[in-house]
Deep mutational scan, measured.
Amino acid sequence: MDVFMKGLSKAKEGVVAAAEKTKQGVAEAAGKTKEGVLYVGSKTKEGVVHGVATVAEKTKEQVTNVGGAVVTGVTAVAQKTVEGAGSIAAATGFVKKDQLGKNEEGAPQEGILEDMPVDPDNEAYEMPSEEGYQDYEPEA
């Protein structure tokens, strides 16, 4: 019985440690998101679009440190934060509304985080759909 109880105690310690790591990862992701939003706020009209992409990228980098179902929630929060940063930029006159959601080359930025393969159960990952990809044929 002692062996059984000791095993359960060790398992509990492992769960607590994993929860603490997840909590730490979420806190880091939130900190990076805040950094990115402050970065966007300090940019001029020309830099705002690039700044919004930076927020998304920093958040995406930190999301990889967070495991399990938390990833889905962090990704949703990050996307809403990026959308909010863009709205703030438009409201303050840093950028025109028609410039939001495009990178410096004018290509749409939507789907940055949505296409990231995420499995809350950590069982399997699927690649994003290939609808947006084109076949590449090298020139002879």
Rank of each mutant, 00 (worst) to 15 (best):
E110R: 04
Q99G: 09
V55P: 01
N103R: 11
K6L: 03
A11C: 00
G41A: 00
T59Y: 01
K23E: 00
G101T: 06
L38P: 00
G25E: 07
V15W: 10
D98V: 12
I88K: 02
T92Y: 04
D98C: 13
K45S: 12
A69M: 13
A69N: 07
G93L: 04
T59C: 14
E126W: 13
P117V: 14
D121K: 13
K23M: 15
E131K: 06
T75L: 13
G67P: 04
D115K: 10
V55Y: 02
A69R: 15
E139W: 10
D2Q: 11
K43P: 00
A89S: 07
G84V: 04
P120M: 14
Y125P: 12
E137L: 07
G31E: 04
K32A: 06
K45M: 09
Y136V: 07
T81S: 02
K96N: 11
V70T: 03
V66Q: 02
A107V: 04
T59M: 14
A107E: 13
K80V: 03
E20V: 04
G86F: 14
G73E: 15
N122A: 07
S87M: 11
M127W: 13
G25I: 13
G132W: 12
Q62H: 07
V3A: 04
G51S: 12
T64W: 14
I88N: 00
G93V: 10
S129G: 15
M127F: 13
F4G: 00
Q134I: 13
D119M: 04
T44P: 01
S87V: 03
N103H: 15
E126T: 08
E139M: 10
A107M: 03
V55S: 01
V95N: 13
K97E: 09
G106R: 01
T59D: 01
V118Y: 05
G31K: 14
E139Q: 10
V66N: 03
A85V: 14
T75M: 15
N65W: 15
G106L: 12
V49Q: 13
A56L: 04
T75N: 09
M116L: 03
A78D: 00
I112M: 13
V16G: 05
V77N: 03
K34Q: 02
V118S: 05
S42R: 05
Q99D: 05
L100V: 06
K21V: 11
Y133P: 14
E110G: 04
M5F: 08
Q62M: 11
D98A: 15
D119I: 02
A30K: 05
V49W: 12
E131L: 04
E104G: 10
K43V: 15
K58G: 01
E110I: 09
K12Q: 03
A27Y: 14
E131T: 08
E13N: 13
V74M: 06
Q134G: 07
T75Y: 14
Y125A: 09
G47S: 14
N65L: 15
G7V: 14
S42H: 00
V52P: 01
K23T: 04
V77T: 05
K80N: 15
H50E: 06
G84K: 07
A19F: 15
G67K: 10
G67H: 13
E126H: 14
G68R: 15
V26A: 03
I88M: 07
G93D: 06
T22N: 01
T44C: 05
A140M: 08
K10M: 03
D2H: 15
P120G: 06
I88R: 02
A140F: 07
G73M: 04
E123K: 07
A69C: 03
V49G: 04
L100A: 12
V37R: 01
A90C: 10
A69E: 15
G25K: 13
D2P: 01
I112L: 13
V48G: 02
G36N: 12
D135I: 14
V74F: 15
V3K: 03
T33N: 03
T33D: 00
A90V: 12
E13D: 01
T33H: 04
Y39A: 04
K12R: 02
G106Y: 10
V49E: 07
V55T: 07
M5R: 02
G31V: 05
G31A: 15
V70L: 15
E61L: 02
E137Q: 08
L38G: 08
P128D: 04
Q99N: 06
G36E: 07
E104R: 09
Q62G: 00
E126I: 04
A56F: 15
S129F: 12
K96C: 13
T59K: 02
K43R: 11
A107N: 11
A76H: 11
Q109E: 14
K45Y: 13
A29S: 03
K60Y: 15
E105C: 05
K10E: 02
Y133C: 07
N65Q: 05
